[in-house]
Design a protein around this nucleic acid. Structure first.
Lengths: 222, 222
DNA sequence: ACTTTATCAATTGTCTACAATATACAAACT
DNA sequence: AGTTTGTATATTGTAGACAATTGATAAAGT
């Protein structure tokens, strides 16, 4: 008596528009500075302006777009300072999350982390750019999950979004990727040994190096 | 040639509605669980539903209200766990802000902090409940300003909002207030001496004690 | 030439009407 | 009696029309 039919999700047009626009921004398809005219968007997505407007208000409060009254909405520009702040915040949040995860994480969750890291290293070795990125996100999301702190998870969500956007906008050398994948190995080792200090060191180094690599070749697009 | 006329602010109805509703929630006038019907709100504020809806979408992404599709919007309920997380996050953010403020703060900013604290202690001595709260907020906002970190300031904004809401909902013993005012004295002393470790201790103790006082007599209103 | 004012086009802001959905409750069926 | 099905009502979701505002450009005045 369990046919296991797939849930039919009835997403409102607002939410579909929101997801579409956010995805376009985070993937770099919509570039910083790009003008988002409500009428254009509504025509492109084949809907009226009302749900588009509500989606834009949400994107605005997420900090992804900027609206000037009676003038228009644009994708928010990112300065080098923004990126430095972003990675500083990442270290702060993730380090805290890691400390809590060491105390509150369950054995199966550590095993899950291990599985992610293994897959990430394999993906890095075969040069699968997209897979490494996806698994890296999985790893850090899982870490947040383990920390059992919904408020921080919400804030992490914001930070992770912008990190994704930055990563999409910068053209990374693929050689960095296998290295970044391998960074997770000693980090996870230290975590499994419940060595908070050492794990913190690796985490900070990992994030900071990723941030520096990006800030380095960030061209102010102004 | 400077008549110094007051700026006429042309705030959109959406923003006025947003400010009004947010203020009502943060001041405790609109209580957690309270239903916010779009039609009612639009009638009460004398505007149409469109700007109300946009305001509600923003409040939703700020985490102040919750919307269930086709069912309605309500003021978000606060559990005891929420409050504990809130004060945990406050310690994390403010401690980081303080560290940065010690490095980046200007002399006049430290003087400003001192002025705030002096006024706060005086207000506490004469039992001026509202003034202590306002000055306490000023102090922590000024600290954020000094840390020169706009992303953290944005996150602080979220945390500070919810702190304000919680403070409005709990019935505090006024005796606590003068004590809380005086907590700022040794903290600021340590900061002026650039003693990061000691300032961090006072800060954590200050916030944690405030959080505990509140979590203590938090009645789950469910 | 320069300043000021008028006009225009583009865009967002707001309103009203209508459609879609969810919940509760009544009615029909077994 | 209990379960299912239909219906009513309240509420949110969406659409399209109109109003308000801005910035640029042209016209008028000095």
């Amino acid at each position: 008596m369990k046919p296991n039919l797939p849930q039919i999700k009835n997403m409102s047009i607002r939410e579909q528009s929101l997801d579409t626009l956010r995805e376009a921004i985070l993937s770099g398809e919509l570039k910083p500075g790009q003008a988002l005219t409500e009428m254009d968007l509504s025509r492109q997505l084949g809907v009226s302006r009302a749900p588009i407007r509500e989606a834009l208000r949400i994107l605005n409060s997420e900090g992804l777009v900027e609206t000037i009254p009676y003038h228009g909405t644009t994708v928010r520009r990112l300065t080098r300072a923004d990126i430095e702040e972003l990675y500083g915040m990442r270290i702060l949040l993730e380090n805290y999350a890691m400390e809590r995860a060491l105390q509150l994480g369950q054995p199966d969750e550590f095993a899950h982390l291990r599985a992610i890291v293994n897959a990430m290293v394999r993906a890095g070795d075969r040069g699968d750019f997209r897979a490494v990125n996806a698994l890296d996100r999985d790893f850090h999301d899982a870490l947040m999950e383990m920390s059992r702190h919904s408020l921080m998870a919400a804030m992490w969500q914001m930070v992770a979004m912008k990190v994704r956007q930055v990563m999409a906008l910068v053209n990374r050398r693929n050689s960095d990727l296998t290295q970044i994948a391998r960074h997770h190995l000693p980090l996870l080792d230290a975590m499994e040994a419940r060595d908070q200090a050492r794990a913190g060191e690796y985490l900070r180094a990992h994030i900071a190096s990723a941030g520096d690599l990006i800030a380095e070749d960030w061209l102010e697009t102004e």
